[in-house]
Design a protein around this nucleic acid. Structure first.
Lengths: 330, 330
DNA sequence: AAGTTTTTTGCTACCGGTAGCAAACGCGCA
DNA sequence: TGCGCGTTTGCTACCGGTAGCAAAAAACTT
């Protein structure tokens, strides 16, 4: 394997200095057309390509963005990743995907991103507790952003769907449909809090004179946990006392819930219990689920985040409206 | 924002040379305990962290691996990404996720990865045609690997599930269940070929004396395309002439197929038409689909790929057996 | 105590670019 | 022909590390 050609190699063969070679590859640099042509010819021959690593070291800009993800169970993440990589790439940036979990925690990931001199860190739907930052000092570190979840760290902006509005839209729809015994299924407590959906849910119904709101708790954001939570609930509640509609914190929980409601208890959705989700996951549209849900403005959120990273927009928390998607399940 | 401390800053304050500082941070380097302690104390005070970018430039090793993905519609990709990032991270590597599509093509991505000096390129389920490499010359470029698809480029190893075995297992199961009018639903032609599933399917049934095998063609690997293909087929075939089992090239197509079979034509799965898929996507286990499918050995494949990247295993094409997952749909 | 070996430390050179200043060049004009 | 000016080119210094040799210091012999 032949060694990669460098600017100096090209310079020698072209009979110019290495700086002239660099200039030939720098758009808008001061160089005569004849020199550029000469350089380009040799560069082509030697298959020279500028080394971005060296450039990064000198400019202090890697054009790489860390994307921290902790929940690979939710297909919805894939949509975010798709839009995010696309948007980053269209701006000449690239996503470094970092899997956060017990074995490779947030702090570790942040330190790693820091050492690799990444330009920014996006926490994509991951919950990050302030305490975690206690022991980390990141002096001139990359700016952080929280995508699709509330930021609970001062100075770290969040780019979010307007939860209050979203839940209000969803609940108003349910209320108009005549449901009066609403239940809520939440995910793990700490993660759930950062979403703020439960809070908005309770506020809505209270404002409409309803205070009785069963809460089902799922241990993970997975269909299996959603299934388990509903199973537990339906087993201990009399048919007469059941909720008539169940709003799940996200689609994945809703899928699990519907599965159990229909397959294990032989109940009908929405006739016996209506179900709604949140996210508008790909599968929500499938006739097998036909789930009423709420779609986050993924593209707008991603664009906003990237604009902040590039410094085109001020770095500050923003929320944007999504879209209610009414289907057959509620 | 304070500037980041460098080895030189630490050296000055600790009264040693910068090389001693480096040594304090190099495991196994020759340095006295007292010097190391002195350096570490100052390093802690200044919050010094080695700059991996500079190290990469000097060592010619970035510990970054490009992961090219072109199909974000398939939730199965998420499993691969999860295992892959985890495995890479456990070896001190990190995944650079590159979204391949019309706007950002393979060649562009490869060039980009090349310029960023990435250590390896993994094409995760992406179809890469030999012609594309025609115009690219990558001198000392990073080694490439194809994951979960046949490699059609000489010198580029593929890490794959044993397709022949897998399809044989699947079909044997269907045959034993008594199905005799099998149909196959394939994805886009070029991509489909690289999977080799169609070929193995035809071979099996021919060997069992069955030559009549309707083929349904989906334009994309998406539920919508799978749905459309089945809709077209069921509309133009008389109930008597229908297949009794439909093997879909992957789960996502199978989901779309089942949706149409049940919701639009009011048929029962598996009574009227049985359906099987491939991949064992998360949703395949959901009661709503309960799909018989075949699971690729994701973990083993990922481990094999990473081992090759690290040079622990010879770089060569390998296939490994997966696991037949029998459920209610067939 | 001097000589020898081993360990520790410092050094030069380098990885492949960037930034910005200074010298060399080319051109128009007097 | 010579002067002044703007453009092009080359230069030094630097980004923050690594590699490996040479000098200095410490440890071991006899």
């Amino acid at each position: 394997m032949a060694k990669r050609a460098t600017a100096r190699d090209v310079a020698e063969q072209a009979g110019v200095s290495k700086w002239t070679v660099i200039r030939a590859f720098t758009p808008g640099a001061s160089i005569t057309e004849s020199s550029r042509a000469k350089v380009m010819a040799v560069a082509e021959k030697l298959n020279y390509r500028p080394n971005l690593l060296a450039r990064s070291l000198a400019t202090n800009l890697t054009h790489q963005v860390a994307v921290l993800v902790d929940d690979f169970e939710n297909p919805y993440k894939l949509s975010f990743l798709e839009r995010l990589t696309l948007e980053l790439q269209s701006e000449g940036l690239v996503a470094v995907l970092i899997n956060i979990n017990e074995h490779f925690d947030h702090v570790h990931a942040l330190l790693n991103a820091d050492q690799r001199q990444l330009d920014a860190v996006i926490m994509c739907g991951t919950a990050f507790r302030t305490e975690m930052l206690q022991d980390v000092r990141l002096d001139g570190a990359a700016p952080m952003f929280v995508l699709a979840r509330d930021s609970q760290i001062p100075g770290v902006p969040a780019i979010n769907c307007d939860t209050t509005l979203a839940i209000k839209d969803l609940c108003r729809h349910l209320h108009e449909k005549g449901y009066r015994r609403p239940g809520f299924m939440a995910g793990p407590k700490t993660l759930s809090t950062a979403l703020g959906r439960r809070r908005a849910f309770k506020a809505f119904w209270k404002a409409h004179g309803i205070t009785e709101m069963p809460e089902l708790a799922a241990h993970h954001y997975s269909a299996a946990s959603g299934a388990e939570a509903v199973r537990r609930y339906l087993n201990e509640v009399s048919p007469a006392g059941r909720v008539d509609v169940l709003l799940c914190e996200n689609d994945v929980l809703a899928f699990g819930a519907m599965d159990v409601i229909r397959s294990e208890f032989g109940l009908k959705v929405p006739a016996d219990i209506a179900v709604a989700g949140f996210d508008n996951t790909l599968f929500a549209a499938a006739p097998a689920y036909d789930l009423t849900t709420y779609e986050q403005p993924v593209e707008a959120m991603v664009k906003a985040a990237v604009a902040m990273i590039l410094g085109r927009e001020p770095k500050k928390t923003v929320t944007m409206p999504g879209r209610l998607v009414v289907r057959g399940s509620a």
